[in-house]
């Protein structure tokens, strides 16, 4: 099951033969079958048929809306799939995603941008005061709950767990030291703005600590939570996607920071670099043992397309 899509309605009912490439389900996705809201995304998932001829983008004062045959494309919760005007290229890509689809059947993994944008819109919608608590529960839209789950990724962050020096003749560890440590230092500095005391991220060094769990202290957690609370709902949804893809709180932070209005030059990285951060150990394993078909090659593209998609959705002119 391809459970990482955020369009819960595009559940791969008939795709059970596809093996799982990424295990993390997006947080709070309604996995029940009784979901009969009449939206385009639902209809596509139920009938697995292309039912439109023409995809266009309609422009109004503040927003760009994707239209299927003159009807707005709607998210699983029934909101129009529209983006603000400072995200023109995003609208174009959404349109491209729906117009360049195979006509035979719609596969959930073919719509990564739509799924992130839908999640953003639906989360924004349920975050409004006075929204139906049932809807909030349905998409798992409780912000504090999501934050709590995301915080757990900071404990065992990919960038905070360092390999023993004995592995790969120390090459992997050297690369980790070179790539991760400066990032960790910069993130500590950045997060300290949100805390009373300077933030110190707890690193799990396999040589020193051996096999055990890793936990951040209370001060760090509070700072990270304060950072999460400072994000807009849109960015928050992008952050969620990035963390679930990279299994790393820090990578999510890096991605969002680089797409923010004034990224600091110390934290500047490309999306390709973030993908490398997240998969460094795999890169060394592939080098040593060779690439396993249907696993490493697919994963490599999957991580990159998801990171790139998240960064595209985060970008604002």
């Amino acid at each position: 099951m391809l459970r990482f899509t955020t369009i819960r309605s595009l559940r791969p009912v008939r795709l059970s033969s596809v093996r799982t490439y990424a295990k993390a389900a997006s947080l709070g996705i309604d996995s029940t079958i009784e979901n009969n809201l009449q939206t385009e995304t639902n209809r596509a998932s139920k009938t697995l048929q292309k039912f439109w001829n023409d995809v266009s983008v309609k422009e109004c004062d503040t927003h760009l809306t994707v239209m299927l045959d003159n009807k707005p494309l709607r998210t699983p919760l029934g909101n129009a799939l529209s983006v603000t005007k400072d995200r023109k290229l995003l609208a174009l890509l959404l349109q491209n995603e729906w117009s360049s689809m195979f006509s035979l059947a719609i596969k959930p993994h073919s719509l990564p941008i739509t799924s992130i944008v839908s999640r953003c819109i639906d989360l924004e919608y349920t975050a409004k005061p006075g929204s139906d608590p049932e809807l909030v529960a349905k998409i798992g839209g409780d912000r504090s709950l999501i934050s709590e789950t995301l915080l757990r990724y900071l404990d065992t962050d990919t960038l905070l767990c360092l390999s023993p020096r004995a592995e790969f003749e120390g090459n992997l560890r050297a690369a980790q030291d070179e790539l991760y440590l400066p990032v960790i230092a910069q993130v500590e500095k950045f997060l300290s703005r949100f805390a009373k005391d300077p933030v110190k991220l707890q690193i799990l060094d396999a040589d020193v600590h051996g096999l055990r769990g890793n936990f951040q202290d209370k001060n760090t957690k509070e700072a990270a939570l304060a950072y999460l609370d400072s994000l807009s709902m849109w960015d928050f949804a992008v952050f969620e996607k990035a963390v679930l893809t990279t299994k790393s709180f820090l990578c999510g932070f890096l991605l969002l920071h680089n797409k923010s209005q004034n990224p600091s030059s110390n934290l500047k990285v490309t999306m390709e670099k973030i993908a490398q951060f997240a998969t460094l150990e795999t890169i060394y394993q592939v080098e040593r043992w060779g690439e396993v078909e249907d696993t490493h090659d697919v994963d490599k593209r999957d991580v990159r397309r998801n990171i790139n998609a998240a960064s595209i959705v985060a970008f604002k002119e």
């Binding site: 290229l89 890509l93 993994h109 073919s110 990564p112 941008i113 490309t270 999306m271 390709e272 697919v298 593209r301 999957d302 990159r304 397309r305 790139n308 998609a309 960064s311 595209i312 970008f315």
Partner: peptide, 14 residues
């Protein structure tokens, strides 16, 4: 560049 990277990886993934 991100967009180009996305399109490329998405195609290869599919």
């Amino acid at each position: 560049r991100d967009i180009a990277g996305f399109l490329q990886n998405q195609m290869e993934f599919e």
